[in-house]
Design a protein around this nucleic acid. Structure first.
Lengths: 214, 214
DNA sequence: CCGCTTTTAGAGTTGACATTCCATTTTTTG
DNA sequence: CAAAAAATGGAATGTCAACTCTAAAAGCGG
């Protein structure tokens, strides 16, 4: 036996090796993500996930030791999805119009899903934070990465003189993210986009009020 | 048989009659509220609730036809609790200092519970909105009542000339409530109060920026 | 094209959970 | 105080969900 922890079981411990396996695993994660967003983590049954993904129990447990492992994979997947969407709108925000475009995008997404489902990360957080330490840690990192995106967008604006030099960007990013999360929860409950609009507009307007440029 | 739907089974259909029964029912609702807040609606088992409340299955099912009925009672209970707390801080907010006192109260409450548990109403909303129509309707009403409280507080301030006459108080209340909800979710995940502080301070600061009085 | 690994099958097990039932005690009321 | 209603006790049931197990069908490397 070698001292290195390499090859022997590099399949499930790491990632599955074959293309087919990767595809199956991917299908499971995507299905689980959708169902968990739609009905919550608890109510998204392994059976349901199997059925919808078109796999059987062996396949699911071949790629994930237990439901918890699947949950963590879902967190990763949803984090990537959300960050990808926001990254494209937040890198190089050069003006308040850029921020507004970001706001519009968020509202459009919610609109597109009929105000159903809320935030892929926020929903997972609500479901898991108090009962699953690993999940909480992962979600904390997800939020942190999202904040970082907002932070860098605001930093770009600050460099351009659109925000005061002494503005605390960490807090500003946090407030913006809170507006997103709170607005989504209220809009999800109300089934209209008004709450989200009010929250985001207020947050952006607040930043405008701080702007040194006029 | 009378045509009126009155007396015969006025016990469980309405409220239990005897003082003892009311006490038992109350204990069940309070215990369920606590557990559902701590671990979520799904994970708060009827068994757990029984054990902690010190009642047995018959008692629980004597007062609530099923878990769903209990959930709705919990929503009512938590709504009353939250509204009571906020009402005392929001009626007759006569200055920005009053708003800040409200903000401090919210943060103190979170602090007191070690950033565990989040908002009693918001947590229920996350858990139930997508899977329980009755609950969603009830929670929508809870949020609306909360907004109303905020609205009237802001109205008081507006009368005093602290807010512009043409400010849309509905949207302002919504934005404030979103800040509370989003801030709580982030703080609950992070286990510190910074996110909530950032969200509330930004929201209040935004209102300040709109103030006609200096 | 053969042996080894990965992937797929799907029936079976185990435990938890909501709910029910029948019997007993306590409280209310006439 | 006696009869009726309410409240309590606790075992039992049935369903559903997570997870396991044995075995067979691809895939791949030599």
């Amino acid at each position: 036996m070698s001292l290195t922890t390499d090859a022997p079981l590099a399949s499930v411990g790491g990632r599955p090796l074959t293309a087919k396996g990767r595809a199956t695993r991917q299908r499971i994660v995507e299905t689980a993500s959708r169902l968990m967003l739609e009905v919550g983590v608890e109510r998204a049954t392994i059976d349901d996930i199997q059925r919808v993904a078109g796999v059987n129990a062996s396949q699911l447990y071949h790629y994930f030791v237990d439901k918890n492992a699947l949950i963590l994979a879902v967190i990763d997947h949803q984090t990537e999805t959300v960050l990808d969407i926001h990254r494209s709108r937040l890198t190089r925000v050069e003006s308040f119009d850029g921020l507004v475009a970001w706001r519009d995008m968020i509202i459009d997404v919610l609109q597109a899903q009929q105000c159903v489902g809320g935030c892929p990360i926020g929903s997972l957080a609500s479901d898991l934070v108090e009962t699953n330490l690993d999940a909480r840690t992962a979600l904390q990192a997800s939020f942190a990465a999202w904040e970082e995106l907002l932070h860098s967008g605001l930093a770009t604006m600050r460099v351009r003189g659109l925000l005061p030099a002494d503005l605390d960007l960490d807090r500003a990013a946090l407030a913006l993210l809170a507006a997103v999360q709170g607005g989504l929860l209220l809009s999800q409950t109300r089934r209209d986009t008004i709450a989200l609009e009010a929250a985001l507009d207020a947050a952006i307007d607040h930043l405008r009020s701080l702007s040194p440029a006029r």
